[in-house]
Design a protein around this nucleic acid. Structure first.
Length: 248
DNA sequence: ATGTCCGTAACCTACGGA
């Protein structure tokens, strides 16, 4: 079984890249973030054999799960947090959650506290599941778990994504019973998943690892990698997909 | 590295958000 997560930075703008990628990568399940639409282009992906669960209300955010191995028990409720940033579903034998964690903006911004609260609610939500079941929690977490997960740690002093509180919030998810599936490195020695559009950051591999696949031990990982090809060329997202081959 | 890209509202550019 092949699963993937990808922040597409607008499914509408990304469709010319997303659909060919879907055919070529041929994942069984895809967690999508930042669809930036109220209406996911379902017919386009249904034509490729996927069912879709989408939570989106317009201009910002928006998450989806695409599955060609079944899709049931769809839930988009994140208690106390109405923005469409979470969707979960049972995809055949695997329970899947797609998340787009709030960015935080700046450490002294109210949105940063909103981010931490959103994490806490996500941790509480795990209680309804069993760490022994096949389950993946994946998406854009907007946290670099270690200093090696940013291209230059000195550039991130005092900024979001690297604070102890954010990392503790991520650790709390892992400590529930999840494994951080670290992909094989891409161009450099580190498996970055995001590069700013500006200033040739991708070309210079000045990136961050902020997209994660967190899996229970019932999920056996055969291989995991960052699909850097999807970040190249014309009209890419600023994130690359993380693709993971698993057995259950 | 204030450097780009996205959607929206309102116009043919500005803005918030990332």
């Amino acid at each position: 079984m092949r699963i993937a997560t990808w922040n597409v930075n607008s499914i509408g703008a990304r469709l010319p890249r997303f659909l060919p990628w879907l055919e070529e990568a041929a994942p069984d399940v895809v967690a999508v973030q930042e669809t930036k639409t109220a209406t996911f282009p379902a017919a386009d992906v249904e034509a490729l054999g996927y069912e879709v669960a989408h939570a989106g209300d317009g201009r910002w955010n928006g998450v989806a799960i695409l599955s060609r191995v079944g899709l049931s028990d769809v839930d988009t409720v994140h208690p106390g947090h109405p923005e469409p940033r979470l969707v979960s579903a049972q995809c055949g034998p695997l329970h899947v959650t797609s998340v787009y964690v709030p960015n935080g903006r700046a450490v002294d911004d109210p949105h940063y506290l909103y981010k931490l609260d959103w994490f806490a609610t996500l941790r509480e939500r795990l209680e309804r599941f069993d760490p022994a079941q096949p389950l993946v929690l994946m998406g854009d977490f907007n946290v670099a778990r270690t200093d090696d997960d940013v291209w230059d740690r000195s550039r991130f002093v005092g900024s979001t994504h690297v604070t102890p509180a954010e990392r503790t919030a991520m650790d709390a998810l892992v400590e529930w019973g999840l494994v951080d599936v670290v992909p094989r490195p891409g161009k450099g020695d580190r498996p970055f998943t995001y590069w700013d559009y500006r200033a040739g950051m991708f070309h210079k591999d000045m990136g961050m690892r902020i997209d994660y696949v967190l899996a229970t031990p019932a999920v056996t990982v055969q291989d995991a990698w960052v699909d850097r090809e999807a970040r190249k060329g014309t009209g890419p997202s600023d994130h690359a997909p993380v693709v993971v081959d698993i057995t259950l």
